[in-house]
Each structure stands twice: as structure tokens, then as C-alpha cells.
């Protein structure tokens, strides 16, 4: 017969205890998150409607909807990613697949890691200096988007490098032994098998770019600007725009007597957009993982 020893018993108890401890911590983390979203939703309920999304703010933002800031955020995010995604991915391919280990690549890699941790207000100041003033773009969608691009670039480089690194070295060696060039190896083996990780990394930066206020408030986002409702081409990239994050800030702190539900509604649209994009990233990841090839 098998009798449990003292040590065995202790191990079993500590094993169960630790499991419960980690579970409790997980719940502690998830509860505030659900409370916040639930509360926002509850308070926003009176204003949430289709119309809320597709009409401009009215009466000095005391009524109306979110059309101008909503479209502005989309412009900012799309333009910034059009810049940062290709540059970031190509830079990561260079750093991971071509660059040899030397002082130059070490400095670049160090810079990437550290730039990813720079506070967004610093990017904002850089954006004002580089794009608004020096490049002469003025306060515009373009200047703000470029500032967001600078902010997201290092993270895209880091996440892309990680995705490329996940492709085993032995695949590359096998290709080189077959007389394939580095580029043929990258195009036929490395990129097709890292694309899901690369895209996920890029998509997660959408939510970051959409949520930031500091980098855009001095570089192109304005307090108020009415645009044609329902026209997705209503903004000019060389002109200023509104943005959800800044809009939320102004109506909650700068404008007195705003109707109760509007700030909550704005917050829900902002959070909802971000969550939607993140969900898309997760779905993409799950889909591509089902076709994982090794």
C-alpha cells in the first residue's frame, strides 16, 4: 500500500495553496477592469446610439455626438501606422536577419529598447520640434501622426524582432545550405512563418496610438472642429483634427455643464474601439496559429 509521507503531504498542501493564491491574484486583477467597463457602460447608456457616433459635437460640446473626434482618431491611427508599420517591420528584418553583431547594431538595439520606454510627453515635444516647426508641417494630422509613429516605432521593431526570432535558426541554415540567398530565405520561410506575430504586434500599437493624448495635443489635435457628418474624407491631413482622447479630456475638465452621459459615452467609444482592435488581433492570432506549420 502507498502511504503518504510527511514531505509528500506538505508538498501537496503548498501546491494547492500556491494555486489558489495565484488564482486569487488573477481575480483581483480582473475585477477592477470589469467594474470600470461595467460602470462606464452603465453611465453611458442614456447617450449611446447610432446617432451619437455619427453627429458632430454641438452647443460647445454640451450635446451632440462624436463624429469629428471619432474620425480624427481613425485618421491619426491609420496615417501613423502607414508610416511606422513598414519602417518598423523592415528595420526589424534588417536587425534580425542581416545585421552582424557589432557596435552599431548593439547601439541600435539598445536605442530600440530604451525608446520603447520613453514617456509619450517626450515624444510630443520631439514632434513639436521636428514635425510642426522644423519640417514646417504646422499643427496637422500629418505632424500628429508622425509623432505617434515615432512613439510606436520602437515597440513595433521589438515585437517584430521577437516574431522573427521565433522562427528556428535551423530553417535558415537548411535554406542557406541549399544555395538560397538571405532574401530568398526570408521571403519563402521566415516571413510567412512570422507574419501572425508581426501583425499582432502592429495591431496592438493601434490601440496605443488611439489612446494617447499627449503626443497629439500640441502637434495636430484641436479642441473643436466641425466636419461634414458621414463623410469619411472630411479631414485634410495637412489640417488639424479632433481626437477621441483629447475630446474626452476637454469635455471632462474644460467644459462646464456637459450632459452627464457624454463623457462616459466618449470613454466607452474609445475603450470599445481599442478593445475591438485588440480582439481582432487575438482572432487573427488564433486563426494563424491553427495553421502553424511546425
Amino acid at each position: 500500500m502507498f502511504t503518504e509521507t510527511e514531505i509528500g503531504k506538505r508538498n501537496r498542501w503548498s501546491e494547492n495553496g500556491m494555486k489558489i493564491f495565484f488564482l486569487v491574484m488573477t481575480i483581483l486583477m480582473i475585477v477592477p477592469l470589469l467594474l470600470i467597463i461595467g460602470y462606464l457602460f452603465y453611465r453611458a447608456l442614456p447617450v449611446l446610439s447610432f446617432e451619437f457616433l455619427f453627429t458632430n459635437p454641438k452647443d460647445n460640446m454640451r450635446s451632440g455626438g462624436l463624429w469629428a473626434p471619432f474620425l480624427g482618431t481613425i485618421y491619426l491611427v491609420v496615417v501613423s501606422l502607414l508610416v511606422s508599420a513598414p519602417i518598423g517591420v523592415f528595420a526589424a528584418v534588417y536587425l534580425n536577419e542581416y545585421a552582424r553583431e557589432n557596435w552599431f547594431t548593439r547601439i541600435v538595439n539598445l536605442a530600440v529598447v530604451n525608446l520603447a520606454g520613453v514617456p509619450s510627453i517626450v515624444h510630443a515635444l520631439f514632434g513639436v520640434g521636428a514635425f510642426v516647426l522644423f519640417a514646417g508641417l504646422g499643427e496637422s494630422v500629418l505632424a500628429a501622426s508622425l509623432t505617434l509613429a515615432i512613439m510606436t516605432l520602437p515597440v513595433i521593431i521589438a515585437s517584430t524582432k521577437e516574431a522573427l526570432n521565433a522562427v528556428p535558426m535551423s530553417f535558415r541554415e537548411a535554406c542557406w545550405n541549399l544555395g538560397a540567398t538571405r532574401w530568398q530565405t526570408i521571403r519563402r520561410i521566415v516571413l510567412p512563418n512570422s507574419i501572425s506575430g508581426i501583425l499582432t504586434g502592429v495591431i496592438l500599437q493601434v490601440s496605443r496610438a488611439a489612446g494617447e493624448t499627449a503626443p497629439i495635443m500640441f502637434t495636430g489635435a484641436v479642441f473643436y472642429k466641425a466636419i461634414a457628418e458621414g463623410d469619411v474624407f472630411a479631414y485634410n491631413v495637412l489640417d488639424q483634427c479632433m481626437a477621441l482622447s483629447l475630446h474626452l479630456f476637454t469635455i471632462s475638465t474644460q467644459v462646464p455643464d456637459v450632459a452627464e452621459g457624454i463623457p462616459y459615452g466618449t470613454a466607452i467609444v474609445l475603450v470599445g474601439t481599442v478593445l475591438l482592435v485588440n480582439a481582432a488581433a487575438i482572432v487573427l492570432r488564433v486563426y494563424l496559429r491553427t495553421r502553424k506549420r511546425w
Binding site: S170, F171, E173, N177, I189, P192, N193, R293, W294
Partner: peptide, 9 residues
């Protein structure tokens, strides 16, 4: 090489 490598193709 020593370890078999099927390329993911």
C-alpha cells in the same frame, strides 16, 4: 545536418 529539418513547406 545532424538534426532532421523539414522546412515548413
Amino acid at each position: 545536418l545532424p538534426l532532421p529539418v523539414g522546412l515548413p513547406l
